[in-house]
């Protein structure tokens, strides 16, 4: 009885969220996978189990290849860009800049904006007109006499998705900065002092003492940015809408479900998005759990 008394209240406290998550996250996730493994290619037919056929046949579609490629470019540019910029900003802050609080707030502000709002503004900034039709950033380049910098931004066929990552970097680098700044502050002064006493230059202190200690922070930032990036939808819809030139899996999923009326295809794409995010998140969770056990 006393035993029950020990665990029951706790269980009762968390059970509503367990139930809700079981139904609305894992239940619907399971249902999605189930639909993805049927041949329900319109909204009426009941659909029969076809195993992994949809998962294989989607690779025959040119649009899928393009959207995967776009997603990879976007992810690499966005994650590397946001990490680098965020780290750099944190580094500057850590040097004890005057008015640090003010800067910190300014860099964090973009976080408060939704991707939709960011997208609407950057759509104008990244207008693809050049020469006489230039507006936004291209116009700015023109005023500065830097016309050679004008390009088609997200409409560039090969590197458009890299341009698409710029607003995302703008938005998230402040957040990464906050993470790194906390990390920097967590490195005790004693350690740095010790390294300096051992004859390290300031650069070597960062290279061999601070950076290795930031690894957990970097990893967290990587996971957070990575999963945002793999399922990005709102930013791209706001900047360019449904166009092949900026297609990503989430947009493809939207057209498959609501335009082509093909639930199985939409569910297949959704499954791939979940799996790709899982590739990021699951190892992190395992690593975290192990670390938790060790300590």
């Amino acid at each position: 009885m006393t035993r029950v008394r020990r665990w029951l209240p706790g269980l009762l406290l968390v059970s509503p969220s367990i139930v809700l998550i079981a139904v609305f996250v894992y239940g619907l996730l399971g249902w999605n996978f189930k639909v993805a493994m049927t041949d329900q290619h319109d909204e009426i037919s009941p659909g029969h189990f076809v195993g992994l056929d949809n998962f294989i046949s989607i690779w025959d579609q040119e649009r899928w290849g393009i959207s995967v490629r776009h997603s990879i470019i976007f992810t690499v540019v966005f994650v590397v860009g946001a990490l680098a910029l965020g780290w750099f900003l944190a580094f500057l802050m850590e040097k004890g800049i005057k008015g640090e609080g003010g800067f910190r707030t300014v860099y964090l502000f973009p976080m408060a904006v939704s991707f939709i709002a960011t997208g609407v503004v950057w759509r104008w900034l990244m207008n693809s007109g050049t020469g006489e039709q230039a507006v936004g950033l291209n116009r700015l380049f023109h005023y500065l006499g830097l016309d050679f910098l004008q390009w088609h931004w997200f409409r560039d066929q090969d590197w458009g998705m890299a341009a698409m990552a710029i607003p995302a970097i703008w938005q998230m680098s402040g957040y990464v900065m906050a993470l790194f700044l906390a990390g920097f502050r967590g490195v005790s002064e004693d350690l740095r002092e010790a390294a300096r006493v051992d004859g390290c230059s300031e650069w070597q202190v960062y290279r061999y003492v601070v950076l290795p200690l930031l690894r957990p922070v970097t990893l967290s930032a990587l996971i957070i940015l990575g999963h945002i990036s793999l399922k990005v939808f709102d930013l791209i819809v706001a900047v360019s809408g449904k166009q092949i030139i900026t297609d990503v899996p989430a947009i493809f999923m939207w057209t498959a479900v609501f335009d082509s009326h093909d639930p199985a295809k939409g569910a297949t794409i959704a499954s791939y998005i979940v799996l790709s995010v899982a590739v990021f998140v699951v190892p992190y969770l395992i690593w975290n759990a192990r670390r938790g056990n060790r300590s």
Binding site: Q157, D259, S260, H261
Partner: peptide, 17 residues
């Protein structure tokens, strides 16, 4: 119909490239 239209639209989007 929608599905056909979407397929056409995809093909034209790819053709633009």
């Amino acid at each position: 119909p929608d599905a056909w239209k979407t397929a056409l639209s995809d093909a034209i989007g790819l053709f633009q490239q």
